[in-house]
């Protein structure tokens, strides 16, 4: 289990406990956090679960594969160095304390 913090564009924070094998995306969906759509259900098709990893984060994340890299070209808000698809971030104990910023829009 890991505590994940989702920061909304207006600065408010939502902190939730997410359990393996859920992903950072599913953690948001299960807690009805507005700002993650995940229309394709987590199959890296749609790019509507885009998050920005906090720049000061030292939490170790799995590397990005080619498909995720490609899908991030089509996000509704600009892609940045710290962009990820939250459906590609499976939760492990290592992710405890992760802070992700939600973009203004997903679609």
């Amino acid at each position: 289990m890991a505590k994940i913090t989702y920061q909304h564009p207006d600065g408010t924070l939502t902190v939730v406990d997410v359990q393996a094998p859920d992903t950072v995306m599913r953690g948001a969906k299960l807690n009805n956090i507005d700002g993650i759509e995940a229309q394709c259900g987590g199959s890296a098709q749609c790019g509507t679960c885009h998050v920005y990893i906090d720049e000061a984060s030292t939490v170790p994340l799995p590397p990005m594969d080619e498909v995720e890299d490609d899908v991030l070209y089509g996000t509704a808000c600009p892609r940045r160095e710290n962009s990820r698809l939250s459906c590609q971030l499976p939760v492990t104990d290592d992710l405890d304390g992760l802070l992700v910023h939600l973009p203004e829009a997903q679609s």
């Binding site: 899908v71 070209y73 089509g74 509704a76």
Partner: peptide, 11 residues
């Protein structure tokens, strides 16, 4: 097999 094209096309 071109997910980037698809996302860019939507935009």
């Amino acid at each position: 097999g071109r997910p980037a094209d698809h996302g860019i096309a939507r935009r």
